[in-house]
Computed example of a mutant assay.
Amino acid sequence: MKCKYFILIVFITCFSQFSKGSTGSNYDFIVSKDGDGDFTCIQDAINAVPDFRKNRTSIYIKNGVYKEKLILPASKNQVLFIGESLENTIITFDDYASKKNCFGEEKGTTGSSGFYIFGDDFTAENITFENSSGPVGQAVAVRIEGDRIFFNNCRFLGNQDTLYPHGENSRQYYKNCYIEGTVDFIFGWSTAVFEKCEIFCKGPGYVTAASTLEETPFGFVFINCKITGNAPAGSVYLGRPWRPYAKTAFINCELGEVIKAEGWHNWNKKDAERTVNYSEYKNTGSGAKSANRVSWSHQLTKEERETYTLENIFNGWIPESAANIQTP
């Protein structure tokens, strides 16, 4: 009888450890290229998340280079990605807009994306997202459609069109992130806040290309960020309007010498000068001098700056750090 009791205890203990992931951690699933996790591919872990689950699903991704074209469907909400380390947990793919699909058609900008995020309430920490195709035109690393998306301590690597906050009603928060590129490398319709991020300009071009809807009060907002790069001095614009009501603000940012004195470009759309909202507030650095800014950009007053709070920008949503989230 004692022997049977002992065996039962061992079985329960082993089952409990397995249910928390193969390494006995508190994550639901563990991905490891070495085979010592629950899956060797990230997409397999995503597919294993129950559709329309009402609780958070945490996925721990061990160090490795994962060359996968990922899709997080709209049925997979509250998914949490945690990388083992920022520099060594890399999700990469190499599609680009002019690359042909199996029918001989160009993939296009959206088709070039390495990771499509359609699910709501997605969070990622300590992960590098890369489009490795090189300087071949539009080549997206991540395209986001879902709402309430949070990236903390992540990297986005690419050239043209690196990061695509696409969803018109999507709210996205980037904290302590690194984003690099050349032309329009942060672009799209979404409301997105970048706080304490490094924006690295790899060549002459444009940091942003917002396409904010007229009725959307905020577009891209950069707070306490650093705009750096190895592009030639005075060769990068802060933004240009992909659509006529583009909204972009740089607040308390350090703007390096790569930024052009005029700051903003109209994309040869004279009418857009009347409709865009391109704003700055107390930026510093050699690229922040306002004397030669285009006349249709705006230096915020203190009262206007006070409207740029996370709660106001995100209409009540306050992002929560994954470090504070209790995983199962």
Rank of each mutant, 00 (worst) to 15 (best):
F194H: 07
S170I: 11
Q172R: 05
D184K: 12
F187W: 03
E168R: 14
I179C: 03
V183Q: 09
F187Q: 07
Y174T: 04
E195H: 13
F194T: 06
I179M: 11
V183N: 13
Q172F: 06
V183I: 14
N176P: 00
P165Y: 11
A192K: 03
N176A: 10
D184N: 14
A192N: 06
S190K: 05
N169D: 14
V193C: 04
G181C: 12
E180M: 05
H166V: 02
E180L: 03
K196V: 08
T191R: 05
E168M: 08
I179N: 02
C177W: 09
Y174L: 09
I186H: 04
Y178L: 14
A192H: 04
D184E: 11
F194I: 09
G188D: 02
T191C: 08
D184V: 07
V193T: 09
D184L: 10
F187T: 07
E168P: 06
F185G: 06
Y174P: 00
P165F: 08
Y178P: 01
I179H: 04
H166C: 01
K196A: 12
G188Q: 11
G167P: 03
Y178A: 01
E195Y: 14
A192E: 01
Q172L: 07
G188S: 07
C197I: 15
R171L: 06
S190I: 11
F185C: 04
K175M: 04
S170M: 09
C177G: 00
